[in-house]
Amino acid sequence: MLGYILKRLLYAVPVTLAVSIICFSLVQLAPGDPLTVVLPADASQEIVDQTRARYGLDKPLPTQYLLWLSNVLQGDLGTSIASGRSVSSEIGHAIGYTLSVAVLACLLALVAGLALGLVAGYTMGSPMDKIASATAISGVSVPHYWLGIVLVVFFSVKLGWFPAMGAGRSGQSLGDALSFMILPVLTMAAMPAGIITRSVRALVAEKLGQEFVTALRAKGMTSPHIFAHVVKNAAPTALAVIGVQMGYLMAGSILVETVFAWPGTGLLLNNAILTRDIPLLQGTILVLALIFVALNLIVDILQPLFDPRIQRA
């Protein structure tokens, strides 16, 4: 088991490096010059060149990458061009907001997705299955920024139950803080809940159709026992689906955070894109990508606990 974990950790290293290269180069590919944002339009060529040199933007790209990487490895993500604050403090501030809604949305998506998926898979073809599947498909196909706006119109504007945007003041009570989160959480959970439902439904139905389930009935096992066997068999694949969905949620949603003016990493990215704030953009994407890699690593490590064949492969 330890060897397996070490192997998975080693595999994560090249993935992470590749991610850092992609983060760095994608941003460079985007058109536009970050200096146009910080400098006045009539700045002299001399000042433009000086500023360019100060941010290291005059060096060739590979050199820029290596400089950036060595700084990143020392924990320095650079300085935001737009705000002048360090990128790590910007991210550190935003990521707490993103994680708080993401974790709640994950839990909601997980509970709803597992419950609906299990019911649908067990009752394939029944009215229960049709209701659960229809709910799941709506969750997957409704655009979430649109869902966010509809929720705001209904619950904030018409009913006045929850605030429409923002995260409230600092020092507010937990109840108040939660009331700001409810609509973003609902909006963010809809799609992963639908995807988890669909996957779990298909998985459960597939496992129930396998010969070992007939063999379990043949040796006198009753439904609760068979359920436990089916769950353990379905768990590795379900974990992989859930891990990816959690990754998407943790990485924040630019659209949802923008709709709700939620001060998380999504909004940060949105602003960084609008202001061509390259260091902030690179740093944020890198951190989010690393969270994604870490979640997948956790899934890889958990899977063999359910299926011993995975460790062998």
Binding site: E211, F212, A215, K232, N233, R309
Partner: peptide, 16 residues
């Protein structure tokens, strides 16, 4: 009454 199945590879639960 109990049964021995044709394919033990599929009739045994792979993860127990």
């Amino acid at each position: 009454v109990s049964m021995v199945f044709q394919e033990p590879a599929t009739a045994l639960d792979p993860v127990f």
